[in-house]
Design a protein around this nucleic acid. Structure first.
Length: 916
RNA sequence: GGGCGGAUAGCUCAGCGGUAGAGCGUCGCCCUUACAAGGCGAGGGUCACAGGUUCAAAUCCUGUUCCGCCCACCA
């Protein structure tokens, strides 16, 4: 099956069920080899460019990536088929802090070494090896998902081109005064030993304790009691603050207090900003070097900054006897000493806010240090203006306000990290004659290359990963070179990503794009929800509920699955195929902020693929003598009907995609394929295909081929592999070598045929009604029964009579007749239809009490509906105020129901008279 | 402390002014030569709760309760 020759008209026998593995491998290879997804910047087509949000090289892709890839691939394939010059740029992110951390952990686990043991050069070399390994894995995963990325343009945020872009941006922003270096209190990760930006800090609440400590006032018997959640920081206290208006303490301002344990005298100050007199005791200890609010207070009052911690958060020499203890040990010791000396007043349970490093999960320590910053206010202003102007639109639009809220209150962005893996900051410091460097001095130069004169050393810090990804929409297209790609594909058509990185990434791309390219990087930001497990829980390794997309696609034995998944699927996962996963993900997009991925639902999608496969298989089995002549074949009513149904589906799918409603698009296509095409049309077509009438047979063949062709095109963006495989086997003349590069169906009004839809409806209704009677009355499917329809309308009678063969076949009848109403059969199951009555005369085959129950249920149902409508219609204000078409419709319905109830009652009466 | 999302059939979700739909699961009957990963039927919901607006509310407004997320330097 994998070796199908492209363009071959030979309809090779299809396997009985769809086997995705070989088909997928085959087509992802062919598509790539043929350059199906390689964009041409010089074509005359309208450009449509997406950049893939570069996944971190830290590991392999999870379902969130699969979702992103699916949504973007649906869009890009759809647009490509619509005739756009579609470009989807793949890439990966070096993910500085995350990658360095995992490689450090691996290094420790395998070699028992730290990065410091290796040294910077050897360590980064090791990270590059890691990147090569995982980068290849990620690329492979994307291919298996069917992502139609242009691999010839693949980029990495740390490749030489992007490094050039990063340096260019850094130098220019510096020259414009938008990048500066400053000594400030930053968030410090004592485990990873680096500064973090505000965004990389997570605020948690934990159960903790609020301790109250007494500080004796010097030269007085008074004691001031302060409350703190971090008693160990008292070692760095520079003052005690009270509210200046607080009558309880006002007299103490200007005096000093004695710091317990260290016995240092510290001033008592009045500060209205720091102190809320109504909270706690109204007294606050001030530790400027270890708390952001205290830092500001220290600045206001010129207090000394006493740093008590080393970079690893171990107490330093300023901590006197506590030096050498880490922060948690120091807390214990300080507390026990305070208690022993009578300074500990109280300890009560308290929910404490705790700032934790996003990566290491270690509590962050505020730390005074020199860092590089981006002055974001001017950039944010331009970005906000662009969104206000409507140059950038968020989908769903609720995110607009989130964006505004953050941008309006944006702080300068700390971009330097004390890491080894990343873009080294292009700043150089002079080395003096002793070989010494003063890192705190402002004698550095910022430049694209090291200065040629004298001895210089480059800043050892690297840039925040998001600094380079902020440039992605243009750097991935070749900037700062004026490439063809850049001219053609910037701005991108749209940005698709998860809402979790709206601040980290989206906001910064908007700012950088506007600043360096003069226009926003994309007009639309589509933000998808987060993928969670079936219980709505976040997928995480520790919970053991992370599903590898490849395990869904290719299947996995139970023992290969993480515990939580294994519990749920003790048999392991069967292979579902990439298409089934994609279809399910596309279907799930409409939800709020989370998507609970249900594997059962993926199985449903797999069943759909199999259904499609078998529909094609059926077609092929009936097409061996079919030759595409190009001549239009005049078909019957059902040919027009299915063509019309398909056309409405084409319209619905395109419209839904236009509005990013992937859920509606997939369900429209699904319902048509399974409900209309497979359940009805194919069943109907069987008579024509197997009958004597050569014209009818040719018509059915023609319709089959055309509907399949169009349906496969329609479905291709969602399920590219199976559609390509089937399409290749279709005996039609093909303008393109692959379906992936073929034209997408667009709505053709001429194909819509309301008349045939109206004629087919009663046929389907009759068939369904007979089936209900059969099933409810326990008539065996093999039993060839007789059914008769009493219809007033001669047109209806003739329409039904013309379809006698179809009705007979689909309802399993021995005989069918449509006649003018006459007296009811004495012994018959019945069903009231629109404008007709159906009877299935019985000769002892029907359980009469069952039939009576069924009719009674029908009657009750109709009566209930009639009752509520009647009540509504007798309400004068409804008739007066509701739109007339609603009132008319309800009146018609009431009349119809009344007639229906009368008939059902009569039928009920009729069979009730029959003795059992 | 602000802001946002969700609450609809046993499960996963559509619908978002004209009194409810799908898939899976359940229950019948069928191996009808495209498909048992199937066919044909059936059953199943006071649309979280309480008010309000409206002729009409799952759908709009207000409040409440749960679940989840984001932002925020109250010791």
């Amino acid at each position: 099956m994998t070796d199908v020759k492209m363009g071959s008209l030979a309809a090779a026998e299809l396997a009985k069920s769809y086997e995705p593995a070989s088909v997928e491998a085959h087509w992802s290879r062919i598509w790539e080899e043929r350059g199906c997804f390689t964009a041409n910047p010089n074509s005359a087509r309208e450009p449509y460019c997406l950049v893939l949000p570069p996944p971190n090289v830290t590991g392999s892709l999870h379902l969130g990536h699969a979702l992103t890839a699916t949504i973007q691939d649906v869009l890009i394939r759809w647009k490509r088929m619509l005739g756009f010059e579609a470009l989807w740029v793949p890439g990966m992110d070096h993910a500085g802090i995350a990658t360095q951390m995992v490689v450090e952990r691996e290094l420790l686990a395998t070699d028992g070494k730290s990065r410091q043991d290796l040294g910077r050069e050897a360590f980064t070399e090791r990270v590059w090896k890691w990147k090569a390994n995982y980068g290849a894995k990620i690329g492979e995963q994307h291919r298996r998902l069917g992502a139609s990325l242009d691999w010839s343009r693949e980029r990495f945020t740390l490749d030489s081109g992007l490094s050039l872009a990063v340096r260019e941006v850094f130098v220019r922003l510096y020259e414009e005064g938008l990048i500066y270096r400053a000594q400030r209190l930053i968030h410090w990760d004592p485990e990873l030993l680096t500064a973090l930006s505000d965004l990389e800090v997570e605020n948690e609440e934990r159960d903790g304790t609020l301790w109250s400590i007494a500080y004796p006032v010097v030269g007085s018997a008074e004691r001031l009691t302060v409350a703190t959640t971090r008693p160990e920081t008292m070692l760095g206290d520079s003052a005690i603050a009270v509210h200046p208006e607080d009558s309880r303490y006002r007299h103490l301002i200007g005096k000093t207090a004695l710091l317990p344990l260290l016995e240092r005298e510290i001033p008592i100050i009045g500060d209205a900003e720091l102190v809320d007199p109504t909270f706690g005791t109204g007294v606050v200890k001030v530790t400027p070097a270890h708390d952001h609010r205290d830092y500001a207070t220290g600045q206001r009052h010129g207090l000394p900054m006493i740093n008590i911690f080393t970079e690893r958060a171990v107490v330093n020499e300023n901590g006197g006897p506590y030096a050498g203890l880490d922060r948690f040990e120091a807390r214990e010791k300080v507390l026990s000493d305070l208690e022993a000396q009578g300074f500990l007043v109280e300890a009560k349970p308290y929910r404490i806010p705790l700032a934790v490093s996003q990566r290491s999960k270690s509590p962050v320590e505020p730390r005074l240090s020199w860092q590089w910053y981006v002055r974001v206010a001017p950039l944010a202003e331009a970005a906000l203006a662009a969104v206000h102007r409507g140059d950038i639109r968020f989908v769903p639009e609720g995110w607009t306000n989130t964006f505004y809220a953050w941008m309006n209150n944006i702080h300068d962005w700390c971009i330097s990290r004390q890491l080894w893996w990343g873009h080294q900051i292009p700043a150089w410091y002079p080395v003096d004659s002793q070989g010494q460097v003063d890192w705190t001095a402002s004698t550095f130069v910022v430049a694209r290359e090291a200065p040629s004169q004298g001895k210089w050393i480059q800043d050892t810090d690297v840039l925040d990963t998001w600094f380079s990804s902020a440039l992605w929409p243009f750097s991935a297209l070749g900037w700062p070179s004026e490439t063809e790609d850049l001219k053609r594909f910037y701005p991108n058509a749209l940005l698709e990503t998860g809402h979790d990185i709206i601040f980290y990434w989206v906001a910064r791309m908007v700012m950088m794009g506007i600043h360096f390219m003069g226009k926003p990087p994309f007009p639309i930001v589509y933000l998808h929800a987060m993928v969670r497990d079936e219980k709505g829980e976040k997928m995480s390794k520790t919970k053991g509920n992370v599903i590898d997309p490849l395990d869904i696609i290719g299947g996995a034995p139970a023992k290969a699955l993480p515990p939580a998944i294994r519990n749920r699927y003790p048999e392991g996962l069967p292979p579902m195929g990439a298409d089934a996963l994609r279809l399910t993900l596309a279907q799930s997009t409409q939800q709020g902020r989370e998507i609970r991925l249900s594997i059962d639902r993926v199985a449903g999608s797999r069943a759909f693929c199999n259904k499609l496969w078998n529909a094609a298989r059926f077609a092929m089995m009936n097409l061996h003598d079919w030759k595409p002549t190009g001549e239009p074949v005049r078909g019957g009513i059902f040919d027009a009907w299915i063509t019309s149904r398909l056309e409405r589906t084409v319209e619905a799918v395109n419209q839904s995609l236009e509005g990013f409603d992937f859920s509606a698009a997939t369900s429209a296509a699904y319902q048509f394929t399974w409900g209309d095409f497979c359940d009805w049309y194919i069943e109907v077509a069987k008579s024509a295909l197997q009958g004597e009438d050569a014209d009818a047979r040719r018509a059915a063949q023609s319709t089959l081929v055309q509907c399949l062709d169009r349906t496969l095109r329609l479905l291709h963006p969602f399920i590219p592999f199976i559609t390509e495989e089937i399409w290749q086997r279709l005996p039609i003349s093909k303008a393109e070598e692959t379906l992936a590069t073929s034209a997408y169906p667009i709505f053709l009004a001429m194909n819509v045929d309301a008349a045939s839809e109206a004629q087919v409806a009663p046929v389907l209704e009759v068939v369904s009604a007979i089936r209900v009677i059969r099933s409810e009355s326990g008539i065996h499917p093999a039993e060839r029964i007789f059914a008769v329809v009493h219809a007033e309308d001669p047109a209806m009678r003739s329409a039904l009579t013309q379809q006698t063969a179809v009705i007979t076949r689909l309802a399993g009848l021995g005989e069918f007749r449509a006649i003018a109403p006459e007296s009811k059969p004495r012994l018959a199951a019945s069903q009231v239809l629109r404008g007709a009555e159906l009877f299935v005369p019985l000769s002892g085959i029907v359980d009469l009490s069952e039939e009576r129950n069924r009719l009674q249920r029908e009657l009750d149902r109709s009566r209930a509906e009639w009752g509520s409508l009647d009540r509504k219609l007798s309400n004068a204000s409804f008739v007066a105020r509701a739109p007339s078409e609603i009132v008319d419709r309800d009146r018609e319905r009431v009349a119809e129901l009344a007639g229906r109830m009368k008939k059902i009652s009569a039928n009920l009466q009729n069979i009730s008279e029959v003795p059992e």
